[in-house]
């Protein structure tokens, strides 16, 4: 479903990604981890074309992301993305946040969009907040709305860019619960996160990145049991210390 082949990217002379390759099958949950600055976020932003890359080929649902003729807006409409800082639209009510792209991109009627939006809001446990504005919600609630907003587009796969990093600790679980639910329903997901509990629980594979390279791409049992690379071992021992 997502095929990443030999992707390289640089800003001027600074190499951000070097020769990254990975395959994601339908229904797989891929957790991407690694130290900060290792290129994890950049890599998943390449998948929906938010970050351009100079070399390699990236194919999503049979469409080449890097090809100049590709209609990126059309491709992105079916690739959901959740950001570290939620990025809800602050001037729109929650329900309008959920509807705007359904109406403007998918061409749904307002009634259809609202119906679908409210259903998803219910799913993330926030029906009561439909008429509120993002600034009136907690971080955890905002992130759940952001997930619902992405789901409203009926995405074929979902990208998560450190979805819990900006949250207070007590709000992390409410967001992870929603993500676990999605994973168990068979949603194809690429998740950049440091939540190793989540990875242990639902990941199909774990990709470990360091300095713009994919150092390790292993099943979660192999990764947590016997990581091959020394760098991954160090990383794991550091984040699993406490």
């Amino acid at each position: 479903m997502i095929s990443i082949k030999n992707i390289s990217k640089h800003y001027g002379s600074f190499q951000v990604l070097t020769d990254c390759s990975a395959e994601v099958e339908k229904g797989e949950v891929i957790v991407i981890c690694g130290p900060s600055g290792s290129g994890k976020s950049t890599l998943i932003k390449c998948v929906n074309g938010l970050e351009p890359f100079q070399q390699g080929e990236l194919v999503v649902n049979g469409i080449s992301v890097g090809a100049p003729k590709t209609n990126l807006a059309k491709l992105r409409a079916h690739v959901g993305m959740v950001f570290q800082n939620f990025e809800l639209f602050p001037h729109m009510s929650i329900v309008d946040n959920l509807c705007i792209a359904q109406i403007k991109v998918l061409g749904r009627s307002r009634e259809e969009a609202v119906e679908r939006g409210l259903k998803l809001l219910d799913r993330v446990g926030l029906s009561a907040q439909a008429e509120k504005f993002p600034g009136q919600l907690s971080g955890g609630q905002q992130q759940r709305v952001a997930i619902a907003r992405a789901l409203a587009m009926d995405p074929t796969c979902m990208l998560f860019d450190e979805p819990t990093s900006a949250l207070d600790p007590e709000m992390v679980n409410e967001v992870l619960d929603v993500m676990v639910g999605l994973a168990q329903e068979g949603m194809t997901m690429m998740v950049v996160t440091h939540e190793m509990g989540f990875a242990r629980n639902v990941a199909s594979r774990v990709i470990f990145m360091d300095q713009g390279r994919i150092v390790e791409d292993a099943s979660k049992d192999d990764f947590f049991g016997t990581p091959r690379s020394e760098r991954a071992q160090q990383f794991l021992s550091k984040i699993l210390q406490h």
Binding site: L50, A73, R76, F83, F89, H91, I100, L106, M153
Partner: peptide, 25 residues
């Protein structure tokens, strides 16, 4: 920058992202 990314990631075109997301704020 995230607001623009969020608009684009939903499949809005750049003009739509300006119209509905960036300019109102």
């Amino acid at each position: 920058v995230g607001q623009k990314s969020a608009g684009l990631a939903l499949g809005l075109t750049l003009p739509q992202t300006y119209r509905y997301v960036i300019l109102p704020m």
